[in-house]
Simulated assay, not measured.
Amino acid sequence: MHPNELPSEDMPKTIKRDTGKLDVVETKRSSPPDFCRGGLANGNSLIPIIAGEFADPVTKIWAGGRIHEYIAAADGRRHLWHAWLSSERVKFCANNAMSAELAYHQLTFASSKDLILQAFGERVRGYSNVLGKLGATPRSPRIYRALARTLLNEGAAAKFVRHATEPSDEMILSIVALPPALAARPVLNLLKGGLVAPEAIGFVTWALRRLESLQGTKVTGPLLKAANPVEAIWEVILSFPFPAPPWEASGSLVPIDTLVGLDEIARKFNNCLGHETMRRKTVLSILNGVRYFYEWRGEEPAVLEFGKLGQVGWCLLQTRGERNHYVAEETRFGILAACANFPMVCATDGLGSHHWADDGTWVAAVF
């Protein structure tokens, strides 16, 4: 190159300086291309993809040619900037040029420890390391705040998050929702082993504590070793005794007052009560005192579902025979006549719902 020829933009510049001992040659690369050219800073920008919810403040802080600094930054550093912007302590106005300029210098030159201290008011041990494991995808502001709260609480939960290989949003949010006393190490180990989904960790921890207080460690010990702890917990919950029936057996009308009895009815009638989801929902409604089931042992067997109407009584919601088939008219009147013997029972709820027995057939059977 001619001595008077200016170096091109893309060629490295070589500067020779004398240190007094050795000639040290420093090679400086030319400025990276301006990502704002070619329309990248407009509607077709990369910024909404890599900045997510922070796109607006990012384009204000790293305005013009500075945007390449944001794009070229390491994932962990960008997450740290996002965390700083997520803080409720940091006062930043995106529409104020001076505020944006101050934020740029702060985020560019301050250390990670100082940025974390500004964002959360105290040192958050391991915060930068965890941010470095979040990958390139931007997270929402609540994730950065939840992560800080979890680590500040210390204990088993904080240690678990620090050692997680790829902390997910679900895991961070579910763990931060746990009171520190409930962030039990055995439950976190279930999460680590993949036996419990992140969104179920709160339920599992609470259920184990409650069951332990009600039935002792003899129940919770096996649950922690179960192949599917969540399903095992549900089985224990559903195994609690049914409340007493609203009224005792009378003639062909017999209460189904145990879980074993309900399972036998499901098999006998081959109905929807045998489906896992419906079974769980049904048993819970019984344990909660808002539903009760009776078996009709007449010439045409049937299953009757009663719903509670506050403190007034019970209404007959539906009656089904085998395979959920409707019962014959004669059976209908027999069931209604039997219900008429109990003053707390009505065949309809009076709310306009369509039940198997309307007011007309009810009145005919009773009177």
Rank of each mutant, 00 (worst) to 15 (best):
M1I: 01
E5H: 01
S8N: 02
E9T: 07
R17T: 15
D18T: 12
V24Y: 08
V25T: 10
T27V: 08
R29K: 07
G38P: 01
L40D: 11
N44A: 09
G52D: 01
D56E: 13
V58H: 07
I61G: 00
G64M: 14
H68T: 05
E69T: 00
Y70V: 14
Y70Q: 03
A83S: 04
W84C: 00
S86W: 05
E88K: 10
A94D: 05
A94P: 03
N96I: 04
E101A: 15
L102D: 06
Q106A: 07
Q106P: 00
L107M: 09
L107R: 07
S111T: 04
S112D: 08
I116Y: 10
F120C: 02
G121R: 04
V124Q: 05
S128Q: 06
R139V: 07
L151S: 03
N153F: 06
G155Y: 15
F160S: 02
D169S: 10
S174P: 01
V176C: 14
A177H: 11
P179Y: 01
A181I: 13
L182C: 14
P186F: 11
L188A: 01
N189I: 06
L191I: 14
G194E: 07
E199H: 07
R210G: 00
S213K: 10
V219I: 12
V219Y: 03
G221T: 03
L224C: 05
A226L: 12
A227K: 14
P229M: 15
E231S: 14
A232E: 08
A232F: 09
I237W: 10
F240M: 12
F240R: 12
S250P: 00
S250I: 02
L253K: 02
L262G: 00
R267F: 10
N270T: 10
L273Y: 04
E276T: 09
L284I: 08
S285T: 13
G289K: 14
F293S: 02
Y294W: 10
G298C: 03
G307P: 01
G321Q: 04
E322T: 11
R323A: 14
V327N: 12
E330R: 07
T331K: 15
F333L: 15
A338T: 04
N341W: 13
F342E: 10
V366C: 09
